[in-house]
Nucleic acid binder design. Structure first.
Lengths: 181, 181
DNA sequence: TTCCGGAATTAACCCAAGTTAAAAGTCATG
DNA sequence: CATGACTTTTAACTTGGGTTAATTCCGGAA
């Protein structure tokens, strides 16, 4: 049995409006969510109320809190819909168990986790080695459509800076690009 | 066949002195390295010569460049021994292929990748949400022995700051802790 | 068209960390 | 114990981003 078939059989549909949460930081949510349509953001909330965006999740991608679904601890982040969402929910344990007996599913999960790991490494690289300005430029190069999907506030919180800081960076980029003309 | 047995059968030993490289940024090194003994650092080198340390790898852990071994691209980082090392080398593809036909190995790899993913998520969280000072305090809490293993220069480059910056942070921590006595 | 509310920009000020360079500390080795 | 190389600290100055608050911009509703 292939992964898609397994999900179709064992998953249940979930519909959420923009602004609604799927789970919150601290929840013991052991589900894996596949995004059939819509857009979500995963974010950390610090004790003093500051938001930091871990990632945006769009159509075709999936998300789970590994701390909750694999390690059995409370989720370290919240998941909220930015646009109306159609999701497929699957207990993470069901997939993990299926991978132990089903070679196709195991292979799919290994490939999924390898790709996931590469994405996380890329993010780690950006946060460790690049300045906020460099991160912003890279984001614009790699996913220019992002600016039409989310607010500048959210882009800033994804880059690890404040909206004010991002505004300054944009201005800096424009003026340094213009003065060479 | 279990993972340990597979590695024993298919792996080859590799010994390196402190200071020697295992592979360098840009190499197409498709191997996976298990650390039987020793200590290594994985680091990024920016075009202007700045070093940023991705991770330290100690006895019992393993490391590979996924970009090289899974995606077939040049490695984004270098791997160098900080202490004399005894490693076991395995072609990553051998393990990946074995996981397709061998359920035990597939299960081991899934678990390995899940743990790897959780570690990467924790690092992402620290770099995105914590200040350098908070990251340093967290490092001291979680792995206090690190200060005896690597230089302060390297701790700083792991935290994403300069050695000068770390020296100031240490001073700040001591003086604020002392003034309450 | 006007009005409202959120988003983005701008300004003023603050501060943590970067940079460069000098000084002090540490340690191995002859 | 003296030397030299490396690590760490300190100092002086710069800078990028945070904070707060005011202002401008913009889109939707009346």
């Amino acid at each position: 049995m292939k992964l898609g078939e397994f999900i179709a059989r064992n998953g249940t549909p979930l519909v959420r409006e923009a602004g609604e949460h799927v789970f919150r930081q601290g929840d013991q949510n052991q589900s894996l969510y596949f995004v059939k349509d819509g857009l979500l953001k995963a974010y950390y909330l610090s004790t003093d109320g500051k938001e930091n965006i871990k990632s945006f999740i769009s159509k075709g991608y999936s998300i789970t809190s590994l701390m909750a679904s694999h390690a059995g601890k409370p989720s370290t982040f919240s998941l909220v819909c930015l646009k109306p969402c159609e999701l497929t929910v699957l207990p993470f344990s069901a997939l993990h168990e299926a991978s132990r007996t089903n070679a196709d599913i195991a292979a799919s999960i290994v490939d999924f986790l390898l790709n996931f790991a590469m994405k996380k490494e890329a993010r780690e690289y950006e946060l460790l080695c690049l300045s906020p300005e460099e991160r912003y430029k890279k984001l614009l190069e790699e996913t220019p459509q992002i600016v039409n999907l989310v607010t500048q506030n959210e882009i800033a919180r994804y880059l690890g800076i404040t909206p004010v800081g991002l505004s300054r960076i944009k201005k800096r980029i424009i003026t340094t690009a213009t003065q060479n003309s």
